[in-house]
Amino acid sequence: MSEKVSFPVKDGSSATGAIVWPKQGGKAPAVVLIQEWWGLNDHIRSLLDRLAAAGFIALAPDLYHGKTTKDATEANRLMTELDKPHALEEIAGAVRFLSAHERSNGKVGIIGFCLGGALSLAAAATVPELAAVVPFYGVPSPAPDYSRVKAPILAHFASRDEWATPAAAEAIRKELAARGQSMDLHIYDADHAFANDTRPDVYNPDAAKLAWERSIAFLKQHLG
């Protein structure tokens, strides 16, 4: 079960989110989880629980500041109106909070879905403290300065995705590879949001299971 947490942001404000702690004692690696366009809802909280069960301190910043929706039109409005530079500052604040926490081993990764996947890639270029980046089917627009990416990236995209297209993901991978930066890209025979088990219209259990297992192994490799 998650608990509410607050943490400082660089501009002097504070942000809030949900945090879950792993059961084992001692120091643990940490992961920032970034919401889909629906907001910090029960599905995202269930992913926090899964991350904690895998041994991570997991924190999801509440980028919509208390708002959630089940309506796609409203979700699109919330995503469009989101102050993305400030959202990235809140994400950076979450990373710094986890990095310095007494329960943390000091290493922090990020994982995000849909809107959160796009923000995870943007954070890779703007939050130098990150040690691992795992975006699911999201492409930031406008594109960040990918030359600033330091952390390795494991990206999951869907073959039938007209929003976060495989071609866009491959273009990012090629740009990073040309500079010797690491991005491992997996394309699944699936639709956008294939990992969301609350959406039977698009959920693909096999692809979701494989992508999650790859993600946990990757995060443990780089944060453990």
Results as ranks from 00 to 15, higher is better:
residue 3 E to D: 11
residue 144 P to V: 01
residue 99 S to T: 13
residue 38 W to R: 05
residue 132 A to V: 06
residue 196 N to P: 10
residue 28 A to G: 03
residue 8 P to K: 00
residue 218 F to S: 11
residue 216 I to A: 04
residue 95 V to D: 05
residue 216 I to E: 07
residue 14 S to M: 13
residue 88 L to P: 08
residue 33 L to E: 09
residue 141 S to F: 14
residue 151 A to G: 14
residue 58 A to P: 07
residue 195 A to H: 10
residue 171 A to Y: 02
residue 104 S to Y: 09
residue 82 L to T: 12
residue 84 K to E: 15
residue 167 A to C: 09
residue 25 G to H: 10
residue 116 G to M: 06
residue 108 V to P: 03
residue 62 D to C: 01
residue 202 V to T: 15
residue 30 A to G: 09
residue 144 P to R: 00
residue 144 P to E: 04
residue 212 W to T: 06
residue 70 K to G: 15
residue 178 A to D: 13
residue 155 A to D: 11
residue 143 A to L: 10
residue 142 P to F: 05
residue 96 R to K: 15
residue 76 N to W: 13
residue 60 A to S: 09
residue 125 A to D: 05
residue 114 C to Q: 10
residue 10 K to W: 09
residue 90 E to D: 09
residue 87 A to Y: 07
residue 79 M to G: 05
residue 103 R to C: 12
residue 171 A to D: 09
residue 168 A to G: 13
residue 54 A to F: 08
residue 80 T to I: 09
residue 77 R to E: 15
residue 52 A to D: 10
residue 36 E to F: 01
residue 105 N to C: 11
residue 111 I to M: 10
residue 122 A to K: 03
residue 1 M to N: 13
residue 154 L to I: 08
residue 142 P to L: 02
residue 50 R to W: 06
residue 35 Q to L: 07
residue 165 T to Y: 05
residue 163 W to F: 14
residue 42 D to C: 07
residue 77 R to Y: 09
residue 58 A to W: 05
residue 186 H to E: 09
residue 205 P to I: 02
residue 170 E to F: 10
residue 159 S to M: 14
residue 99 S to R: 14
residue 20 V to Q: 13
residue 118 A to L: 02
residue 84 K to R: 15
residue 186 H to P: 01
residue 2 S to D: 07
residue 92 A to Y: 08
residue 222 H to I: 08
residue 142 P to C: 09
residue 149 V to N: 03
residue 17 G to I: 04
residue 161 D to I: 05
residue 87 A to D: 06
residue 102 E to Y: 00
residue 16 T to G: 15
residue 174 K to L: 14
residue 180 G to C: 07
residue 159 S to Y: 12
residue 132 A to W: 07
